[in-house]
């Protein structure tokens, strides 16, 4: 939080409580009883253009959504979902946004709601839009928690993540952004206690990436699924398409009451969240397998596979070709 001094002079810290927004109301009303709002939802704002508006999707469980896009000055690197869970003794943060500044906004939003210490910063996977806000939370007693393969995967990509995204955003918006690696690697299902509620952390096989970790809250049965679920934003494949479909299949056997996608609304029901992702991945896998069987090249296949999905997703042109390329390189070894 060294960064906070240079980024936000004391006079700028003007936190205020806003009335419940329509979105908060809708999500809350659909998901939870009115008791969900026993603790007044709040939002932190600032002049920096990376306003964080957490929504209380279940008692003590808050999510702030990000824009659907790639790193760009207009979105300030706030392009993914991030959230936090408030226990009786500690707060756990789940993903921290794409820059130290977004992370700091998230911290300010937490501070507007509770004085309880942030005990854990949990990253759902390695991608920069989910982990580059970590630096804002560094401090005594904070554990950084991730899949046991997160540290390796993130350090291998660290230079690229920092230089490319700094170029895309500009140095000012990217100020103080650093890689913060996990201090607590998760190898098997692990429970952490926040006081009055436990979080079940589950590391997965290679799926969206090789370091996907999901978080399920015992008190509300809300699960943060990271980028295993995309809604609206086209899924991006940086792991294994077969593994991803397997993980979603297993998850569907015992879904949480509410899930938080890595990109999309603050909270969703499992079925409407998972169905489009599975449909997309199935379409890619099936078309790519067919193309491989017919002896088509990767290049031809990138142009043709799963084009039926084009209208269903935002950012299709940005990521779909790469997904097909990755699926092709994986599936031709079957």
């Amino acid at each position: 939080m060294i960064a906070s001094k240079s980024l936000y002079p004391a006079s700028d810290v003007s936190l205020r409580t806003l009335p419940i927004s329509r979105q908060q109301f809708l999500v809350g009303a659909a998901a939870m009883a009115a008791a969900a709002f026993a603790g007044a939802p709040a939002a932190a704002t600032s002049a920096q253009g990376t306003d964080i508006h957490p929504v209380e999707i279940a008692p003590g469980v808050f999510v702030a959504t990000g824009a659907h896009g790639v790193y760009a000055p207009a979105n300030g690197g706030d392009i993914s979902n991030k959230g936090f869970i408030i226990g009786d003794t500690a707060v756990a943060v789940v993903d921290t946004g794409g820059t130290a500044r977004v992370g700091l906004e998230l911290l300010r939003a937490i501070r507007a709601l509770t004085d309880r210490p942030v005990g854990y910063v949990i990253n759902t996977h390695m991608h920069p839009d989910h982990v580059l806000g970590n630096a804002a939370f560094r401090g005594e007693g904070v554990q950084f928690v991730g899949h046991h393969k997160l540290a390796a995967a993130l350090s291998a990509r660290a230079e690229r993540y920092l230089s490319y995204n700094r170029d895309a955003l500009g140095a000012e918006a990217f100020e103080s952004t650093e890689i913060v690696l996990p201090t607590q690697p998760i190898e098997t299902v692990t429970t952490i206690d926040l006081g009055g509620r436990q979080l079940r952390l589950e590391p997965h096989r290679t799926a969206h990436t090789d370091n996907d970790l999901t978080i399920r809250d015992s008190k509300t049965d809300v699960a943060f699924l990271g980028d295993l679920i995309f809604a609206g934003h086209v899924p991006t494949l940086d792991g294994s398409i077969r593994g991803w479909l397997t993980v979603l299949g297993e998850m569907g056997a015992k879904p949480a009451r509410k899930i938080v996608p890595g990109h999309g609304p603050a909270a969703m029901d499992w079925q409407p969240a998972a169905t489009p992702v599975i449909r997309y991945l199935d379409a890619v896998a099936s078309d790519v397998r067919q193309a491989i069987k017919a002896g088509r090249t990767m290049r031809e296949t990138i142009a043709t596979a799963a084009q039926s999905e084009r209208g269903a997703w935002e950012l299709f042109d940005e990521f779909h070709g790469r997904n097909v390329s990755a699926a092709f390189a994986e599936l031709e070894w079957e």
Binding site: K149, A152, A153, A156, R157, E159, R160, Y164, T206, T209, D210, L237, D238, G239, S240, A326, E330
Partner: peptide, 14 residues
């Protein structure tokens, strides 16, 4: 851009 320094495979162990 970045093709030569991209990490091996999507799945490091593999």
């Amino acid at each position: 851009a970045g093709g030569c320094s991209a990490p091996a495979l999507k799945d490091a162990a593999e």
